Simulated scan of single mutants.
Amino acid sequence: MTTPTPTPVRPLLTDIEARVLGTLMEKARTVPDSYPLSLNSLTLGCNQKTSRDPLMELGESQVASAVASLREQGLVHETTGGRTTKFTHNFQRGVGVYEQAAVLLGMLMLRGPQTAGELRLNTERWYKFADISSVEGFLEELLERSEEKGGPLVVKLPRLAGTREQRWAHLLCGEVDVQALESGRVSHGASGNNERIERLEREVAELRSIVHKLCGELGISADAAADTPN
Rank of each mutant, 00 (worst) to 15 (best):
G96T: 07
L218F: 07
P54L: 04
R83Q: 15
H170N: 13
Y35W: 12
A222T: 01
L39S: 08
L108W: 05
S221G: 05
Q62G: 13
L172F: 13
N122M: 08
G174L: 02
R159N: 12
A161E: 15
P152Q: 06
G96W: 15
T2W: 15
S38D: 10
R111Q: 08
G81C: 00
M109L: 14
E57D: 11
G151W: 03
D227V: 00
Y98A: 15
G162F: 09
E217G: 00
W126I: 04
E175N: 14
V135W: 05
T7G: 10
K49W: 13
L42K: 08
K128M: 07
A116N: 09
E99I: 09
E140L: 06
S41Q: 09
S41I: 00
G174I: 00
E217H: 04
L13P: 09
E57K: 02
C215W: 14
R167G: 01
E26K: 13
M25T: 02
I16G: 08
P54H: 10
P4S: 04
K27C: 14
V95F: 05
A225W: 13
A68S: 11
L55C: 00
L139A: 03
G96N: 13
R196S: 10
H188I: 00
M25I: 08
T23E: 12
R145S: 03
L143Y: 14
A226H: 11
R199Y: 06
P158I: 01
T50M: 06
A66K: 00
E26G: 04
V67F: 04
Q62N: 15
L214G: 01
P158M: 09
D15W: 08
R208E: 13
H212W: 09
P11K: 07
G106R: 01
L218P: 02
V176Q: 13
A66F: 05
N194R: 12
R125F: 13
V176P: 15
S65C: 05
T115D: 07
A101H: 14
V63C: 08
E217L: 13
G96C: 10
Q73I: 02
E99D: 15
T2V: 10
Y98P: 02
G74I: 03
K128C: 10
F129S: 07
G184S: 01
L139E: 05
H89R: 10
R29G: 13
S183M: 11
G189P: 06
F87L: 01
G74D: 12
E57P: 05
N230T: 04
R71W: 06
E99W: 14
E148M: 11
V211F: 03
H188N: 11
A66C: 08
L172W: 05
S183V: 04
C173I: 02
R120N: 01
R167A: 01
E148F: 03
L24M: 15
R111P: 01
